[in-house]
């Protein structure tokens, strides 16, 4: 059994993590995949200089995500005696989490409820809402 946990680096993510931990403890064998997606689009516009440094920046972004968000989360889970690993990707948050869950054959996605609010949420919607609408795997939204 595999569970995918999507984190966004906000404190609400801790609740999703707790929920997943609780769920996993009730199961006999369960692998937890903790995912952090760095919002990125291949169709954005950049300067030549930004392009030249892109590879370096990407490595840095991945390192920061691992260090600040994923490693502590994985540690929390493994300390509790669970099997867990981290995945960090660039891309659209909802699409990428869904793709990972689908490719890994996960049985469930667990995310925190949207932390975005107000104006930007009205215009762009939230990643959580998009995920719930489009996911090919059952999604649990933790309040």
């Amino acid at each position: 059994m595999k569970l995918v946990i999507g984190l966004d680096g906000q404190s609400s993510g801790d609740k999703a993590l707790e929920f997943a931990k609780d769920l996993a403890n009730r199961m006999e064998s369960c692998e937890l995949i903790v995912v952090y997606v760095i919002e990125w689009s291949p169709f954005s516009f950049q300067t030549a200089e930004e392009n030249a440094q892109r590879h370096k920046r990407r490595e840095e972004e991945i390192a920061i995500a691992m260090e600040r968000v994923l490693n502590p989360a994985v540690k929390t889970l493994t300390d509790a005696g669970l099997t867990a690993r981290a995945v960090v990707r660039h891309g659209d948050v909802a699409d990428t989490i869904d793709n990972i869950a689908h490719d890994e054959g996960a049985s469930q996605i667990i995310v925190a409820r949207s932390s975005a609010g107000g104006f930007s949420k009205r215009i762009f919607g939230s990643s959580t809402a998009n995920l719930v609408m489009d996911a090919r795997v059952p999604v649990t939204v933790v309040a």
Binding site: I38, W40, P42, F43, S44, F45, Q46, N51, R54, H55, R58, E61, I62, R89, H90, G91, T96
Partner: peptide, 11 residues
């Protein structure tokens, strides 16, 4: 994903 895409280089 996250590297310079063809689109970005072209743009």
């Amino acid at each position: 994903a996250g590297e310079v895409s063809h689109f970005q280089a072209l743009a």
